[in-house]
Design a protein around this nucleic acid. Structure first.
Lengths: 225, 225
DNA sequence: TTAAAAACAGGTGTAAACCCCTATTTTTTA
DNA sequence: TAAAAAATAGGGGTTTACACCTGTTTTTAA
Protein backbone atom coordinates (compact mmCIF):
# COMPACT_ATOMS: atom_id res chain seq x y z
CA UNK A 1 0.00 0.00 0.00
CA UNK A 2 1.20 3.44 -0.90
CA UNK A 3 1.54 5.79 2.04
CA UNK A 4 -0.12 9.19 1.82
CA UNK A 5 2.68 11.74 1.54
CA UNK A 6 2.00 14.91 3.48
CA UNK A 7 3.74 18.05 4.72
CA UNK A 8 2.85 20.16 7.77
CA UNK A 9 3.08 23.88 8.43
CA UNK A 10 2.37 25.49 11.79
CA UNK A 11 4.26 28.17 13.64
CA UNK A 12 3.69 26.71 17.09
CA UNK A 13 6.48 24.19 17.53
CA UNK A 14 4.75 22.27 20.30
CA UNK A 15 1.63 21.89 18.22
CA UNK A 16 3.64 20.79 15.19
CA UNK A 17 5.57 18.26 17.24
CA UNK A 18 2.29 17.04 18.66
CA UNK A 19 0.94 16.46 15.18
CA UNK A 20 4.13 14.69 14.20
CA UNK A 21 3.74 12.44 17.23
CA UNK A 22 0.11 11.70 16.40
CA UNK A 23 0.57 11.16 12.68
CA UNK A 24 3.93 9.45 13.06
CA UNK A 25 2.15 6.40 14.42
CA UNK A 26 -0.10 6.13 11.38
CA UNK A 27 1.12 3.42 9.06
CA UNK A 28 -0.67 4.83 6.02
CA UNK A 29 0.70 8.36 6.39
CA UNK A 30 4.19 9.52 5.60
CA UNK A 31 5.22 12.97 6.75
CA UNK A 32 7.80 14.17 4.27
CA UNK A 33 8.63 17.35 6.18
CA UNK A 34 7.23 20.06 8.37
CA UNK A 35 7.62 23.83 8.21
CA UNK A 36 7.50 26.63 10.75
CA UNK A 37 5.73 29.12 8.53
CA UNK A 38 4.50 29.80 5.04
CA UNK A 39 7.83 30.91 3.61
CA UNK A 40 9.54 27.88 5.06
CA UNK A 41 6.90 25.62 3.57
CA UNK A 42 7.13 27.13 0.10
CA UNK A 43 10.93 26.96 0.17
CA UNK A 44 10.84 23.32 1.17
CA UNK A 45 8.27 22.53 -1.50
CA UNK A 46 10.42 24.22 -4.14
CA UNK A 47 13.58 22.37 -3.16
CA UNK A 48 12.00 19.01 -2.38
CA UNK A 49 12.79 15.98 -4.53
CA UNK A 50 9.60 14.26 -3.50
CA UNK A 51 6.44 16.37 -3.38
CA UNK A 52 3.72 15.73 -0.82
CA UNK A 53 0.21 14.99 -2.08
CA UNK A 54 -1.28 16.94 0.78
CA UNK A 55 -0.22 19.99 2.76
CA UNK A 56 -1.80 20.58 6.16
CA UNK A 57 -1.30 24.22 7.03
CA UNK A 58 -2.24 26.51 9.86
CA UNK A 59 -3.93 29.69 8.68
CA UNK A 60 -2.39 32.09 11.17
CA UNK A 61 1.36 32.23 10.69
CA UNK A 62 3.93 35.00 10.74
CA UNK A 63 5.05 36.11 7.29
CA UNK A 64 3.29 34.17 4.56
CA UNK A 65 0.04 33.04 6.14
CA UNK A 66 -2.23 30.12 5.27
CA UNK A 67 -4.34 32.07 2.81
CA UNK A 68 -1.35 33.25 0.83
CA UNK A 69 0.26 29.81 1.03
CA UNK A 70 -2.89 28.23 -0.38
CA UNK A 71 -2.97 30.67 -3.28
CA UNK A 72 0.71 30.12 -4.02
CA UNK A 73 0.46 26.35 -3.86
CA UNK A 74 -2.49 26.39 -6.24
CA UNK A 75 -0.41 28.35 -8.73
CA UNK A 76 2.94 26.62 -8.40
CA UNK A 77 1.94 23.15 -7.30
CA UNK A 78 -1.59 22.58 -8.58
CA UNK A 79 -1.45 18.87 -7.75
CA UNK A 80 -0.93 19.46 -4.04
CA UNK A 81 -4.11 19.49 -1.95
CA UNK A 82 -4.30 21.97 0.88
CA UNK A 83 -6.03 21.19 4.17
CA UNK A 84 -6.56 24.31 6.27
CA UNK A 85 -6.08 24.03 10.00
CA UNK A 86 -7.54 26.66 12.26
CA UNK A 87 -9.22 27.42 15.55
CA UNK A 88 -12.07 29.62 14.47
CA UNK A 89 -13.69 30.35 11.16
CA UNK A 90 -16.76 32.04 9.82
CA UNK A 91 -18.90 31.14 6.88
CA UNK A 92 -17.62 33.78 4.45
CA UNK A 93 -14.07 32.94 5.39
CA UNK A 94 -14.50 29.24 4.73
CA UNK A 95 -16.26 29.89 1.46
CA UNK A 96 -13.46 32.16 0.42
CA UNK A 97 -10.84 29.59 1.39
CA UNK A 98 -12.64 26.99 -0.70
CA UNK A 99 -12.78 29.38 -3.62
CA UNK A 100 -9.05 29.99 -3.48
CA UNK A 101 -8.35 26.29 -3.38
CA UNK A 102 -8.43 24.71 0.07
CA UNK A 103 -9.99 21.25 -0.15
CA UNK A 104 -10.75 20.66 3.52
CA UNK A 105 -11.02 22.33 6.86
CA UNK A 106 -9.78 21.02 10.17
CA UNK A 107 -10.65 22.66 13.45
CA UNK A 108 -7.87 22.59 15.99
CA UNK A 109 -10.24 21.00 18.45
CA UNK A 110 -10.86 18.06 16.15
CA UNK A 111 -9.98 14.58 17.29
CA UNK A 112 -6.84 12.93 15.90
CA UNK A 113 -9.22 10.38 14.37
CA UNK A 114 -11.04 13.11 12.43
CA UNK A 115 -7.75 14.54 11.30
CA UNK A 116 -6.66 11.18 9.95
CA UNK A 117 -10.03 10.63 8.33
CA UNK A 118 -9.83 14.04 6.67
CA UNK A 119 -6.38 13.29 5.31
CA UNK A 120 -7.50 9.91 4.03
CA UNK A 121 -10.61 11.34 2.38
CA UNK A 122 -8.63 14.10 0.72
CA UNK A 123 -6.11 11.57 -0.55
CA UNK A 124 -8.94 9.42 -1.88
CA UNK A 125 -11.53 11.87 -3.17
CA UNK A 126 -9.56 15.08 -3.46
CA UNK A 127 -11.56 16.96 -0.86
CA UNK A 128 -13.48 16.60 2.39
CA UNK A 129 -16.20 18.78 3.82
CA UNK A 130 -17.33 18.15 7.36
CA UNK A 131 -20.92 18.78 8.38
CA UNK A 132 -20.46 22.42 9.26
CA UNK A 133 -18.62 23.23 6.06
CA UNK A 134 -21.20 21.31 4.03
CA UNK A 135 -23.90 23.39 5.65
CA UNK A 136 -22.12 26.59 4.70
CA UNK A 137 -21.56 25.42 1.14
CA UNK A 138 -25.20 24.47 0.84
CA UNK A 139 -26.37 27.83 2.15
CA UNK A 140 -24.13 29.63 -0.26
CA UNK A 141 -25.60 27.73 -3.18
CA UNK A 142 -29.25 28.19 -2.24
CA UNK A 143 -30.11 31.74 -3.25
CA UNK A 144 -32.05 33.70 -0.61
CA UNK A 145 -34.85 34.61 -3.05
CA UNK A 146 -34.22 34.79 -6.75
CA UNK A 147 -30.75 36.22 -6.60
CA UNK A 148 -27.75 34.94 -8.45
CA UNK A 149 -26.10 31.83 -7.06
CA UNK A 150 -22.68 33.27 -6.63
CA UNK A 151 -23.89 36.13 -4.47
CA UNK A 152 -23.11 34.89 -0.98
CA UNK A 153 -19.79 33.63 -2.16
CA UNK A 154 -18.21 36.91 -3.13
CA UNK A 155 -20.37 39.61 -1.64
CA UNK A 156 -19.49 38.57 1.85
CA UNK A 157 -15.83 38.71 1.21
CA UNK A 158 -13.34 41.50 1.10
CA UNK A 159 -11.48 43.55 -1.44
CA UNK A 160 -7.78 44.30 -1.22
CA UNK A 161 -8.39 47.82 -0.07
CA UNK A 162 -10.84 46.67 2.57
CA UNK A 163 -8.26 44.25 3.96
CA UNK A 164 -5.68 47.03 3.98
CA UNK A 165 -8.02 49.31 5.89
CA UNK A 166 -8.94 46.51 8.26
CA UNK A 167 -5.28 45.90 9.04
CA UNK A 168 -4.69 49.57 9.76
CA UNK A 169 -7.76 49.69 11.99
CA UNK A 170 -6.28 46.76 13.87
CA UNK A 171 -3.12 48.82 14.22
CA UNK A 172 -5.16 51.36 16.17
CA UNK A 173 -5.20 53.92 13.40
CA UNK A 174 -8.03 56.43 13.08
CA UNK A 175 -9.80 57.26 9.85
CA UNK A 176 -7.58 60.25 9.20
CA UNK A 177 -4.43 58.27 10.05
CA UNK A 178 -5.43 55.66 7.50
CA UNK A 179 -6.34 58.28 4.89
CA UNK A 180 -2.88 59.84 5.21
CA UNK A 181 -1.14 56.51 5.07
CA UNK A 182 -3.00 55.37 1.96
CA UNK A 183 -3.02 58.82 0.29
CA UNK A 184 -6.80 58.83 -0.03
CA UNK A 185 -9.64 60.90 1.37
CA UNK A 186 -10.93 60.18 4.86
CA UNK A 187 -14.33 59.76 3.25
CA UNK A 188 -13.04 56.91 1.17
CA UNK A 189 -11.66 55.26 4.28
CA UNK A 190 -15.06 55.67 5.89
CA UNK A 191 -16.59 54.02 2.87
CA UNK A 192 -14.27 51.03 3.20
CA UNK A 193 -14.93 50.82 6.92
CA UNK A 194 -18.67 50.90 6.36
CA UNK A 195 -18.36 48.10 3.82
CA UNK A 196 -16.34 46.10 6.34
CA UNK A 197 -19.01 46.66 8.98
CA UNK A 198 -21.71 45.54 6.54
CA UNK A 199 -19.83 42.47 5.34
CA UNK A 200 -18.73 41.29 8.74
CA UNK A 201 -21.98 42.31 10.45
CA UNK A 202 -19.81 43.83 13.16
CA UNK A 203 -21.24 46.67 15.21
CA UNK A 204 -18.07 48.73 15.65
CA UNK A 205 -14.29 48.63 15.45
CA UNK A 206 -14.16 46.22 18.37
CA UNK A 207 -16.23 43.82 16.29
CA UNK A 208 -14.03 44.38 13.25
CA UNK A 209 -10.88 43.59 15.22
CA UNK A 210 -12.43 40.44 16.68
CA UNK A 211 -13.54 39.38 13.22
CA UNK A 212 -10.13 40.07 11.73
CA UNK A 213 -8.32 38.10 14.41
CA UNK A 214 -10.81 35.28 14.58
CA UNK A 215 -10.56 34.75 10.86
CA UNK A 216 -6.82 35.33 10.84
CA UNK A 217 -7.16 38.15 8.34
CA UNK A 218 -4.44 39.96 10.22
CA UNK A 219 -1.68 38.57 12.34
CA UNK A 220 -1.24 39.50 15.97
CA UNK A 221 2.53 39.13 15.74
CA UNK A 222 3.13 42.28 13.75
CA UNK A 223 1.19 44.50 16.12
CA UNK A 224 2.06 46.38 19.24
CA UNK A 225 1.92 45.04 22.81
CA UNK B 1 12.65 6.89 40.60
CA UNK B 2 9.35 8.61 41.29
CA UNK B 3 7.60 9.84 38.22
CA UNK B 4 6.49 13.46 38.09
CA UNK B 5 2.71 13.45 38.28
CA UNK B 6 1.11 16.08 36.06
CA UNK B 7 -2.27 17.09 34.64
CA UNK B 8 -2.97 18.97 31.41
CA UNK B 9 -5.65 21.48 30.46
CA UNK B 10 -6.15 22.83 26.95
CA UNK B 11 -9.31 23.36 24.97
CA UNK B 12 -7.82 22.40 21.63
CA UNK B 13 -8.13 18.64 21.48
CA UNK B 14 -5.47 18.18 18.81
CA UNK B 15 -2.98 20.19 20.81
CA UNK B 16 -3.80 18.28 23.98
CA UNK B 17 -3.44 14.96 22.21
CA UNK B 18 -0.18 16.15 20.79
CA UNK B 19 1.13 16.97 24.24
CA UNK B 20 -0.04 13.58 25.48
CA UNK B 21 1.84 11.95 22.63
CA UNK B 22 4.99 13.95 23.38
CA UNK B 23 4.93 13.55 27.15
CA UNK B 24 3.64 9.99 27.02
CA UNK B 25 7.03 8.86 25.83
CA UNK B 26 8.81 10.44 28.80
CA UNK B 27 9.68 7.82 31.36
CA UNK B 28 9.96 10.30 34.21
CA UNK B 29 6.57 11.93 33.62
CA UNK B 30 3.21 10.46 34.48
CA UNK B 31 0.12 12.19 33.09
CA UNK B 32 -2.66 11.54 35.56
CA UNK B 33 -5.35 13.12 33.44
CA UNK B 34 -6.11 15.88 31.00
CA UNK B 35 -8.96 18.37 30.85
CA UNK B 36 -10.70 20.28 28.09
CA UNK B 37 -11.16 23.50 30.04
CA UNK B 38 -10.80 25.12 33.43
CA UNK B 39 -14.04 23.79 34.88
CA UNK B 40 -13.20 20.29 33.76
CA UNK B 41 -9.76 20.56 35.32
CA UNK B 42 -11.04 21.80 38.67
CA UNK B 43 -13.72 19.10 38.76
CA UNK B 44 -11.16 16.40 38.05
CA UNK B 45 -8.79 17.80 40.67
CA UNK B 46 -11.59 17.79 43.25
CA UNK B 47 -12.63 14.24 42.55
CA UNK B 48 -9.18 12.77 41.95
CA UNK B 49 -7.78 10.20 44.38
CA UNK B 50 -4.24 11.02 43.38
CA UNK B 51 -3.34 14.71 42.95
CA UNK B 52 -0.83 15.87 40.35
CA UNK B 53 2.23 17.80 41.52
CA UNK B 54 2.07 20.01 38.46
CA UNK B 55 -0.72 21.34 36.28
CA UNK B 56 0.12 22.57 32.80
CA UNK B 57 -2.70 24.81 31.64
CA UNK B 58 -3.50 26.86 28.61
CA UNK B 59 -4.46 30.44 29.47
CA UNK B 60 -7.14 30.95 26.86
CA UNK B 61 -9.99 28.52 27.47
CA UNK B 62 -13.77 28.79 27.31
CA UNK B 63 -15.44 29.14 30.71
CA UNK B 64 -12.91 29.15 33.48
CA UNK B 65 -9.69 30.42 31.90
CA UNK B 66 -6.09 29.88 32.90
CA UNK B 67 -5.91 32.95 35.12
CA UNK B 68 -8.95 31.94 37.14
CA UNK B 69 -7.79 28.33 37.24
CA UNK B 70 -4.45 29.44 38.64
CA UNK B 71 -6.10 31.51 41.35
CA UNK B 72 -8.45 28.67 42.28
CA UNK B 73 -5.70 26.08 42.41
CA UNK B 74 -3.62 28.31 44.64
CA UNK B 75 -6.52 28.54 47.08
CA UNK B 76 -7.83 25.00 47.01
CA UNK B 77 -4.71 23.03 46.16
CA UNK B 78 -1.76 25.13 47.32
CA UNK B 79 0.65 22.25 46.80
CA UNK B 80 -0.03 22.02 43.09
CA UNK B 81 2.33 24.01 40.88
CA UNK B 82 0.88 25.72 37.83
CA UNK B 83 2.75 26.04 34.55
CA UNK B 84 1.06 28.50 32.18
CA UNK B 85 1.00 27.69 28.50
CA UNK B 86 0.34 30.42 25.98
CA UNK B 87 1.12 31.87 22.56
CA UNK B 88 1.61 35.52 23.29
CA UNK B 89 2.18 37.38 26.47
CA UNK B 90 3.21 40.80 27.57
CA UNK B 91 5.39 41.81 30.47
CA UNK B 92 2.61 43.04 32.79
CA UNK B 93 0.63 39.93 32.06
CA UNK B 94 3.45 37.57 32.97
CA UNK B 95 4.27 39.53 36.10
CA UNK B 96 0.65 39.37 37.11
CA UNK B 97 0.51 35.63 36.45
CA UNK B 98 3.54 35.15 38.64
CA UNK B 99 1.99 37.24 41.37
CA UNK B 100 -1.17 35.15 41.36
CA UNK B 101 0.82 31.96 41.59
CA UNK B 102 2.03 30.57 38.26
CA UNK B 103 5.52 29.12 38.69
CA UNK B 104 6.56 28.92 35.05
CA UNK B 105 5.69 30.03 31.56
CA UNK B 106 5.75 27.97 28.44
CA UNK B 107 5.35 29.50 25.01
CA UNK B 108 3.44 27.34 22.57
CA UNK B 109 6.31 27.58 20.19
CA UNK B 110 8.71 26.06 22.67
CA UNK B 111 10.47 22.81 21.85
CA UNK B 112 9.24 19.60 23.47
CA UNK B 113 12.67 19.48 25.12
CA UNK B 114 12.11 22.85 26.77
CA UNK B 115 8.70 21.76 27.91
CA UNK B 116 10.14 18.68 29.56
CA UNK B 117 12.95 20.70 31.06
CA UNK B 118 10.47 23.19 32.48
CA UNK B 119 8.39 20.43 34.03
CA UNK B 120 11.49 18.81 35.52
CA UNK B 121 12.76 22.09 36.92
CA UNK B 122 9.40 22.92 38.44
CA UNK B 123 9.25 19.47 40.01
CA UNK B 124 12.73 19.94 41.39
CA UNK B 125 12.94 23.60 42.37
CA UNK B 126 9.31 24.63 42.49
CA UNK B 127 9.56 27.14 39.66
CA UNK B 128 11.28 27.88 36.37
CA UNK B 129 11.83 31.21 34.64
CA UNK B 130 13.15 31.20 31.10
CA UNK B 131 15.36 34.01 29.83
CA UNK B 132 12.54 36.25 28.69
CA UNK B 133 10.59 35.88 31.92
CA UNK B 134 13.74 36.44 33.95
CA UNK B 135 14.31 39.64 32.01
CA UNK B 136 10.80 40.85 32.80
CA UNK B 137 11.15 39.96 36.46
CA UNK B 138 14.45 41.78 36.61
CA UNK B 139 13.02 44.89 34.97
CA UNK B 140 10.11 44.88 37.37
CA UNK B 141 12.45 44.81 40.35
CA UNK B 142 14.77 47.55 39.15
CA UNK B 143 12.93 50.78 39.76
CA UNK B 144 13.03 53.21 36.80
CA UNK B 145 14.32 56.11 38.94
CA UNK B 146 13.58 56.29 42.60
CA UNK B 147 10.06 54.91 42.45
CA UNK B 148 8.71 52.14 44.58
CA UNK B 149 9.79 48.66 43.62
CA UNK B 150 6.34 47.16 43.36
CA UNK B 151 5.11 49.77 40.93
CA UNK B 152 5.42 47.98 37.61
CA UNK B 153 4.05 44.85 39.13
CA UNK B 154 0.57 45.99 40.05
CA UNK B 155 -0.01 49.33 38.43
CA UNK B 156 0.01 47.81 34.97
CA UNK B 157 -2.53 45.20 35.77
CA UNK B 158 -6.29 45.07 35.89
CA UNK B 159 -9.06 44.97 38.41
CA UNK B 160 -12.07 42.66 38.22
CA UNK B 161 -14.31 45.42 37.03
CA UNK B 162 -11.84 46.47 34.38
CA UNK B 163 -11.69 42.93 33.05
CA UNK B 164 -15.48 42.79 33.00
CA UNK B 165 -15.66 46.03 31.06
CA UNK B 166 -12.93 44.87 28.71
CA UNK B 167 -14.86 41.70 27.97
CA UNK B 168 -18.02 43.63 27.21
CA UNK B 169 -16.09 46.01 24.97
CA UNK B 170 -14.83 42.94 23.13
CA UNK B 171 -18.46 41.90 22.76
CA UNK B 172 -19.03 45.07 20.77
CA UNK B 173 -20.95 46.80 23.50
CA UNK B 174 -21.01 50.59 23.77
CA UNK B 175 -20.46 52.52 26.97
CA UNK B 176 -24.20 52.83 27.62
CA UNK B 177 -24.77 49.13 26.84
CA UNK B 178 -22.14 48.21 29.40
CA UNK B 179 -23.53 50.65 31.97
CA UNK B 180 -26.98 49.06 31.66
CA UNK B 181 -25.62 45.56 31.85
CA UNK B 182 -23.55 46.25 34.96
CA UNK B 183 -26.14 48.55 36.59
CA UNK B 184 -23.66 51.41 36.88
CA UNK B 185 -23.37 54.90 35.44
CA UNK B 186 -21.94 55.37 31.94
CA UNK B 187 -19.39 57.68 33.54
CA UNK B 188 -18.12 54.84 35.66
CA UNK B 189 -17.77 52.69 32.57
CA UNK B 190 -15.84 55.51 30.94
CA UNK B 191 -13.60 55.60 33.97
CA UNK B 192 -12.85 51.89 33.67
CA UNK B 193 -12.25 52.22 29.95
CA UNK B 194 -9.85 55.10 30.51
CA UNK B 195 -7.96 53.06 33.08
CA UNK B 196 -7.77 50.21 30.59
CA UNK B 197 -6.43 52.54 27.93
CA UNK B 198 -3.82 53.86 30.35
CA UNK B 199 -2.74 50.47 31.61
CA UNK B 200 -2.57 48.82 28.23
CA UNK B 201 -1.18 51.90 26.49
CA UNK B 202 -3.73 51.24 23.78
CA UNK B 203 -4.94 54.14 21.66
CA UNK B 204 -8.56 53.10 21.25
CA UNK B 205 -10.96 50.18 21.49
CA UNK B 206 -9.22 48.46 18.60
CA UNK B 207 -6.06 48.47 20.70
CA UNK B 208 -7.94 47.23 23.75
CA UNK B 209 -9.39 44.32 21.80
CA UNK B 210 -5.99 43.39 20.39
CA UNK B 211 -4.45 43.57 23.85
CA UNK B 212 -7.25 41.50 25.35
CA UNK B 213 -6.96 38.78 22.74
CA UNK B 214 -3.20 38.76 22.62
CA UNK B 215 -3.00 38.29 26.35
CA UNK B 216 -5.92 35.90 26.38
CA UNK B 217 -7.80 38.08 28.82
CA UNK B 218 -10.97 37.23 26.97
CA UNK B 219 -11.87 34.21 24.95
CA UNK B 220 -12.84 34.37 21.31
CA UNK B 221 -15.15 31.38 21.60
CA UNK B 222 -17.95 33.13 23.43
CA UNK B 223 -18.22 35.93 20.93
CA UNK B 224 -20.13 36.42 17.76
CA UNK B 225 -18.92 35.54 14.23
C1' DT C 1 -15.35 46.23 -25.23
C1' DT C 2 -18.79 46.86 -22.21
C1' DA C 3 -20.91 45.84 -17.89
C1' DA C 4 -19.69 45.01 -13.14
C1' DA C 5 -17.00 45.59 -9.29
C1' DA C 6 -13.84 48.34 -6.80
C1' DA C 7 -12.04 52.51 -5.40
C1' DC C 8 -12.80 57.01 -4.98
C1' DA C 9 -15.08 61.16 -2.39
C1' DG C 10 -18.49 64.58 -0.97
C1' DG C 11 -22.86 66.34 2.38
C1' DT C 12 -25.19 66.05 6.80
C1' DG C 13 -26.13 64.51 11.14
C1' DT C 14 -26.02 61.70 15.57
C1' DA C 15 -23.87 58.63 18.68
C1' DA C 16 -19.95 57.09 20.71
C1' DA C 17 -15.32 57.46 22.11
C1' DC C 18 -11.85 59.82 24.24
C1' DC C 19 -9.63 63.53 27.28
C1' DC C 20 -9.13 66.64 31.09
C1' DC C 21 -10.65 67.25 35.68
C1' DT C 22 -12.71 66.30 40.60
C1' DA C 23 -14.67 63.69 44.37
C1' DT C 24 -17.27 60.19 47.32
C1' DT C 25 -18.12 55.54 48.88
C1' DT C 26 -16.86 50.83 49.31
C1' DT C 27 -13.69 47.14 49.62
C1' DT C 28 -9.20 45.19 50.51
C1' DT C 29 -5.23 44.52 52.85
C1' DA C 30 -1.26 45.47 55.57
C1' DT D 1 -8.09 49.82 62.20
C1' DA D 2 -5.82 52.94 59.31
C1' DA D 3 -4.23 53.35 54.73
C1' DA D 4 -4.54 51.89 50.02
C1' DA D 5 -6.93 50.37 46.20
C1' DA D 6 -11.10 49.86 43.73
C1' DA D 7 -15.48 51.27 42.35
C1' DT D 8 -18.49 54.74 42.02
C1' DA D 9 -20.00 59.11 39.27
C1' DG D 10 -20.18 63.86 37.98
C1' DG D 11 -18.88 68.50 34.72
C1' DG D 12 -17.37 70.01 30.30
C1' DG D 13 -15.22 69.51 26.17
C1' DT D 14 -13.08 67.60 21.40
C1' DT D 15 -12.46 63.99 18.23
C1' DT D 16 -13.77 59.91 16.03
C1' DA D 17 -17.01 56.59 14.56
C1' DC D 18 -21.01 55.42 12.38
C1' DA D 19 -25.47 56.00 9.41
C1' DC D 20 -27.66 57.23 5.31
C1' DC D 21 -27.34 59.68 1.30
C1' DT D 22 -25.23 60.89 -3.37
C1' DG D 23 -22.13 60.58 -7.12
C1' DT D 24 -17.58 59.87 -10.32
C1' DT D 25 -13.51 57.49 -11.88
C1' DT D 26 -10.72 53.43 -12.32
C1' DT D 27 -9.99 48.61 -12.63
C1' DT D 28 -11.35 43.93 -13.58
C1' DA D 29 -13.27 40.41 -15.97
C1' DA D 30 -16.91 38.20 -19.03
Amino acid sequence: MNKIKIALADDELLFRQGLLAILGNQENIDILFDAEDGDDLINKLRSADLQPEIVVTDLKMPGLNGVEVTKLIRKEFPNIKVIALTSYFSKPFILNMISIGAVAYLAKNSTPALMIKTIEQVAKKGFYYDEQVLQYVHESLVSPKDKKTKCTFDANYFTKREIEVLELICNQMTTSDIAEKLFISPRTVEGHRNNLLLKTEAKNVAGLVIYALKNKLVSLDNNSF
